[in-house]
Simulated assay, not measured.
Amino acid sequence: MNINFEQAWDDMITRLESWVDQLIINLPNIILSIVVFILALILSKYISRLTLRLLEKSKLQASMKNVIAKLVSVLVILSGLFLVLGILDLSKTLNAILAGAGVAGLAVGLALQGALANTYSGIVLSYIKQIKFGDWIETNDYEGEVVDLDLRAVTIKQPDNNLVYIPNKLVLENAIKNFSTTAQSRVILECGVAYESDLEFVRDLVNKTIVKNFDPVESVDDIIFLYTEFGDSSINFEVRFWIDSTSALEVLKAKTEAMIAIKKVFDENDITIPFPIRTLDFPKKVVVGTTEHPN
């Protein structure tokens, strides 16, 4: 028992001494490795800032520029780490790390297919001109202003100030309606007047009202006025005109102002906007019913 304990103690002392000897021998390499890794950390920061400066002239989104700069910084740090492993003569460890990274990368790629698809879609969206910060867009049944675009989702702010986060993959695969690609937007207003109304007078009155209340509309030639149908209780019309705005919210405001102005002039000229009604036409002789009294 005592012999085994003494043998074990001697083996432990011998191994510790060998470790100390290896530490002393490799001390310069260890110090050099620490210096190299620190330099890699410092260099990654400078290269990240340099990358941001180089990307300032590009048309990428601000969020994408930051992401690219961070990726470059991570690559510099990884390069420094691999260099440290080489200095410490840990080539076998480096090979094991690379092999493990390959297997882990395959497993992570299979598990994160959706996330990777969003990442790829985010990179593509950052290059196309159809969508950028400040644009008012409609996609996937959501409408609002683009306030952010990263590797995961497109963030839009709706007219009610709510934020909607749409995965990049859905935005890239579905139609995008961009209201900000032109300098103007069209306002479309539908209404109806009573059947006894003078249709020509109604048309002229509506056109003059639009010209009077909206500066971008210089004359009645800039307005499209169309009677669309004989409705159940009214003759319906549609009026279209342009405003100097690409915001859907401004379009709604202009439509509201147009409705107020048209309703006001209709009231002043005794023009009726009828609500749905049903007319019952009874013949002159109507037999309501007969009642027979028993004797």
Score class of each variant (00 low, 15 high):
L116Y: 15
G192D: 11
S33T: 07
E190H: 01
R152E: 14
L27G: 07
N236I: 01
E138I: 15
S180I: 11
T209D: 05
I131H: 11
N236P: 00
N26I: 15
K129M: 08
G114A: 12
I224M: 08
I42S: 07
K263R: 15
A107H: 05
E196P: 02
I210D: 10
K169C: 10
S185H: 02
P28N: 01
D215Q: 08
I3H: 05
L88T: 08
S121T: 05
N66D: 02
I223D: 07
A69I: 09
L199C: 05
N236G: 00
V239H: 05
L125N: 06
S121D: 00
L78W: 06
G100A: 05
I38T: 03
A258I: 07
E229L: 12
S245L: 10
I3P: 00
T272V: 13
Y46R: 06
S18E: 13
T155V: 14
S219H: 05
V220D: 14
N213R: 01
Y195E: 03
L98D: 08
Q130W: 08
P283F: 09
K157V: 07
L125K: 08
S79G: 13
S185K: 08
L32Y: 14
S44L: 14
P28Y: 06
T14S: 14
H293Y: 09
I166L: 06
I260R: 09
V187T: 04
A115C: 04
L172T: 04
I271H: 02
I210E: 11
L50C: 09
A254Y: 09
P283G: 02
A194L: 05
W19Q: 13
K177H: 04
V286I: 10
L125A: 11
V217F: 05
E143S: 13
S121W: 00
K129L: 04
R152K: 14
A183C: 10
F266R: 11
S58A: 10
